[in-house]
Design a protein around this nucleic acid. Structure first.
Lengths: 146, 146
DNA sequence: CATAAACCCTATAATACTTATCGAAATTAT
DNA sequence: ATAATTTCGATAAGTATTATAGGGTTTATG
């Protein structure tokens, strides 16, 4: 019952990328150092996100990653599903009814749990988070000036 | 992002136990064979549930387990927490703010996810599930008679 | 009191999954 | 040509989950 470090890293990294979203693609190394995420690990994550259609990659000098989808359209659920697969907290929620027992009232609970998780995670988008983060940074800065 | 087999086993086992709830404690071996759960593994689970105050145990001949709490008062969340620990989908939801970054808007998402999971899992009780299961069994039986 | 039926406990094996690293190859702007 | 990048596959390292083993303790019962 844990969202993997993969997903957590990826969301943080995408928020960073969204904040820098300009004409130029951003190299992984930048994000890696800023967000304290192992470089080669992040490489794998962004590669998956590219395959999932969320990011674009550009090789070579001045290469890097940029958003293919708009950050406001990328939900946290999208990210988690791209990296960890379906968010089902129990296997019998995925498809076939619980293989062990014919009658299984318990299944409904896991299905509900899955739905509610999906609902929460699909509401939050990378765009939102990036905006919030910017606001937070500003307000903490202000704390020093006031 | 998975509820462990432990928890899933345990919930199924408790539902079975609730259905047999009488004067006599029920031996683990019974539940193990009925629900196709490895005996010694189930032993560990029930031991944890006893320590969590959900079950009573009775040693010796005619011993076994019985509910200490009433099945209607035992939520699925209680069971999952007893076995898997807190249901937090991400570590920074547990206590201290995310250790990597001062400003972390992402944290809110995991906190929300946790809350919504807890809500769903605390609504379903072992008592409810046992009752549902009994109804399901009956209705499938009836299918043959009609 | 002897016995068998049960739980109790600790250790550890087996398995799977997650996280992380390595190194070489392909691409591309300059 | 070169240096900055992504790309890819392999695999190491670490951790957690699942399962098994074996001996110990309690207790109803005859």
């Amino acid at each position: 019952m844990n969202i993997s470090a993969k997903s957590k890293y990826a969301v943080r990294a995408l928020v960073e990328l969204a904040q820098r979203n300009g004409d130029q693609p951003v190299p992984i190394a930048d994000i890696s150092s800023r967000k304290e995420i192992p470089l080669q690990f992040l490489e794998q994550l962004f590669s998956s996100l590219r395959k999932a259609g969320i990011l674009n990659s550009h090789r070579g000098v001045r290469g890097g990653f940029s958003f293919k989808m708009m950050p406001e359209d990328v939900s946290v659920l999208d990210v988690v599903e791209a990296l960890d697969g379906t968010v089902a907290p129990a296997s019998c929620t995925i498809g076939a009814p619980c293989d062990k027992q014919e009658t299984c009232s318990v299944q409904d609970v896991w299905v509900d749990a899955k739905s509610s998780l999906e609902a929460v995670l699909s509401e939050a988008t990378i765009g939102d988070l990036a905006q919030k983060e910017s606001l937070m940074k500003n307000s903490t800065k202000e704390m020093y000036y006031i």
